[in-house]
């Protein structure tokens, strides 16, 4: 979707402000939110793509004015209610009042912790050979799905070159919406700065994105 989360190339957000000696969490609740999101993800209530989509669909003014873990929290609440794991009334009351919905991978216990600490693999067997080879020129499709996509606006319509091929990966555009992993070839596509930002851009700049095959046309 063309949301405010798709920030590449936007102006006006000001300087980057690193915080010296930044703590891992700025308040205890941030760590609880991180852990709840990871835990509920591990139970199979949602996958990583869905969790991103629920954050992207927060109202733009909420997205832009909320801290990072606040967005995680709001997305988590929305997702659990919409998918039937919680009732809105339970959130209002602050207590459970309806029976739980069965979880695909079971409840999250102390024994489950090790599993979430090791990053999962997103590689899947390919159903067809890769269409593109390293060095091929490709044009990013000019598409504007209102659903989840990992094709940023700033590269749409632009021509780049295939630099790396990563094998077939889970396709976020379908996985986010419970439409299956639908594995697709994943490529690194590199662009000249001038192709993206015009003749006034930094002449020494090259930018790459990780692009799934359905995002690409031959150029």
């Amino acid at each position: 979707m063309n949301g405010v989360h798709d920030m590449g190339g936007m102006d006006g957000f000001g300087k980057v402000e690193p915080e010296p000696n930044e703590p891992m969490f700025h308040a205890e609740w941030e760590s609880r939110v991180l852990a709840m999101v990871r835990a509920m993800g591990a139970t199979g209530a949602f996958n990583i793509d869905a969790s991103r989509f629920y954050r992207e669909t927060l109202p733009p003014e909420v997205y832009l004015s909320s801290s990072y873990y606040k967005k995680w929290f709001l997305g988590l609440e929305d997702m659990l209610v919409e998918r039937g794991f919680l009732a809105a009334d339970e959130i209002k009351a602050g207590h459970a009042s309806v029976p739980p919905k069965p979880l695909k991978r079971g409840n999250f216990t102390v024994d489950s912790v090790e599993r979430v600490l090791t990053r999962g693999s997103f590689t899947r067997p390919a159903s067809a050979p890769a269409t593109f080879a390293i060095g091929d020129r490709v044009r990013m499709k000019n598409i504007h799905p209102t659903t989840h996509t990992r094709l940023p606006r700033y590269v749409r319509g632009h021509v780049g070159v295939i630099e790396r091929i990563h094998g077939a990966h889970v396709y976020p555009d379908t996985a986010a919406h419970e439409q299956g992993e639908n594995p697709q070839w994943l490529y690194t596509v590199v662009f000249d700065g001038a192709e993206l930002w015009g003749p006034d851009g930094d002449p020494t700049l090259k930018v790459s994105v990780e692009a799934f095959e359905p995002y690409l046309d031959p150029a």
């Binding site: 590449g8 990992r150 990966h169 700049l205 790459s208 692009a211």
Partner: peptide
């Protein structure tokens, strides 16, 4: 300058 935009699970 080469900027890598992490748009997938790489």
């Amino acid at each position: 300058i080469r900027v890598w935009d992490s748009t997938a699970e790489t």
